[in-house]
Amino acid sequence: MSIRIVPQQQLGALREKHNTADNIPPLLFANLKSLYRRRAERLGQLATSNSFGDYLRFAAEIAQAQHNVCHDHPLMVDLTTVLAQSAESGKPPLDVLSYLRSEHWQQLLMALIAELKPQASETVLAVLENLEKMSQHQREQLANALLNGEFASVGSDQAPFIWAALSLYWAQLASQIPGKAHAEYGEQRQFCPVCGSAPVASVVHLSSSNGLRYLHCSLCESEWHVVRVKCSNCEQTRDLNYWSLESEQAAVKAESCGDCGSYLKILYQEKDPQLEVVADDLASLILDAKMEQQGFARSAVNPFLFPGE
């Protein structure tokens, strides 16, 4: 991979070998103290004037539950050995296809269910109670299907809750990584360098990373740098186009690639500093419908709306 996470003591030697200074932060880890609370607030704001307002409010309740559970059920784990193995193999340290997850994610799921049940509608309550009554093995099977991209194997009513727990688990793991990210020559950045998952969308940052584009991971919530005006899926630059539902100054656009036939949303914080990647991606589903009408396939995954649902 072109962005690797390596032990701190190896960073200097790698920079000298590859002649890179890493002036651009290649990887940004999530701030779990505010991530889910901010997402819940943004979803609530967007719901007031959106045709999908009810679903945005439902997603906001899950995000707020994630915030509460993250505070009440912290994860402490030593990833030193995992990081060393990753540096040697070149694979993401928390690769969804090979990392052996613990039962902590199921504890998070049960805590999320407990948070959500008091205000749940009858329909949602039935789903939560069904998940609660399942055996651990059955829940593991659902998790395996989602992490392997077999979205059609998991009911659309169950998937958001399973993924919310898995995402919270992986985000907690990512916050424990003791190494630093190092950017090497080459691309291949369409998947998260932390866990290997697909992005939700990309965001052009303000503040210290002004003007830089980062892809936001749909699972571990990390963000990784990908240069602008390049397809995030196939890395081509020849046939890119930008689409929006509003004007040229729209804060949310879709970047399409004529070479691979895919598209990914791109969000501009300079046009709306209140943007939140997951929330604003979900709130712009009409743009997704327009892109599908144009014959482009989405290369991303939203935690509240999976392909095939």
Score class of each variant (00 low, 15 high):
residue 40 A to F: 07
residue 242 Y to E: 07
residue 190 Q to R: 13
residue 37 R to D: 14
residue 188 Q to C: 06
residue 130 N to E: 14
residue 300 A to Q: 07
residue 116 L to F: 03
residue 153 S to G: 00
residue 179 G to Q: 12
residue 164 A to V: 07
residue 163 W to N: 05
residue 125 L to P: 00
residue 124 V to S: 03
residue 268 Y to H: 14
residue 24 I to E: 00
residue 52 F to H: 13
residue 277 V to T: 15
residue 147 L to N: 02
residue 274 Q to G: 00
residue 38 R to N: 11
residue 309 E to L: 00
residue 70 C to H: 09
residue 185 Y to W: 08
residue 164 A to T: 08
residue 175 S to T: 06
residue 18 H to D: 11
residue 181 A to Q: 06
residue 277 V to L: 07
residue 230 K to N: 05
residue 51 S to G: 00
residue 55 Y to N: 11
residue 266 I to S: 07
residue 34 S to M: 09
residue 289 A to F: 08
residue 279 A to N: 00
residue 242 Y to C: 09
residue 255 E to P: 09
residue 19 N to M: 14
residue 28 L to R: 13
residue 245 L to I: 01
residue 87 A to W: 03
residue 90 G to T: 09
residue 61 E to M: 06
residue 68 N to M: 13
residue 12 G to N: 12
residue 70 C to D: 08
residue 215 L to R: 01
residue 84 A to D: 11
residue 187 E to C: 07
residue 74 P to W: 08
residue 188 Q to L: 13
residue 258 G to T: 07
residue 207 S to K: 12
residue 120 A to D: 01
residue 112 L to I: 03
residue 86 S to M: 03
residue 223 E to G: 01
residue 180 K to S: 15
residue 146 L to R: 08
residue 133 K to V: 02
residue 23 N to H: 11
residue 263 Y to R: 11
residue 173 L to G: 08
residue 294 Q to S: 12
residue 136 Q to C: 10
residue 60 A to C: 04
residue 284 S to Y: 01
residue 14 L to Y: 14
residue 69 V to E: 02
residue 19 N to Q: 15
residue 239 D to N: 14
residue 287 L to P: 02
residue 116 L to G: 05
residue 146 L to V: 09
residue 183 A to T: 05
residue 208 S to E: 11
residue 29 F to K: 11
residue 271 K to R: 15
residue 51 S to L: 07
residue 160 P to K: 05
residue 177 I to Y: 06
residue 47 A to T: 00
residue 27 L to A: 10
residue 120 A to Y: 02
residue 6 V to F: 01
residue 131 L to N: 10
residue 269 Q to E: 15
residue 236 Q to F: 02
residue 177 I to D: 07
residue 192 C to S: 02
residue 158 Q to M: 12
residue 238 R to N: 12
residue 101 R to V: 12
residue 58 F to N: 05
residue 288 D to H: 10
residue 184 E to V: 08
residue 174 A to S: 15
residue 111 A to D: 05
residue 71 H to T: 12
residue 285 L to N: 08
residue 159 A to D: 07
residue 192 C to P: 05
residue 247 S to F: 07
residue 33 K to N: 15
residue 155 G to K: 14
residue 88 E to G: 00
residue 194 V to G: 02
residue 132 E to F: 03
residue 165 A to C: 06
residue 137 H to N: 10
residue 299 S to L: 04
residue 135 S to V: 11
residue 56 L to K: 01
residue 131 L to A: 09
residue 183 A to P: 04
residue 41 E to H: 08
residue 192 C to G: 11
residue 116 L to E: 04
residue 248 E to L: 13
residue 193 P to W: 02
residue 307 P to W: 10
residue 73 H to R: 15
residue 228 R to P: 01
residue 4 R to W: 06
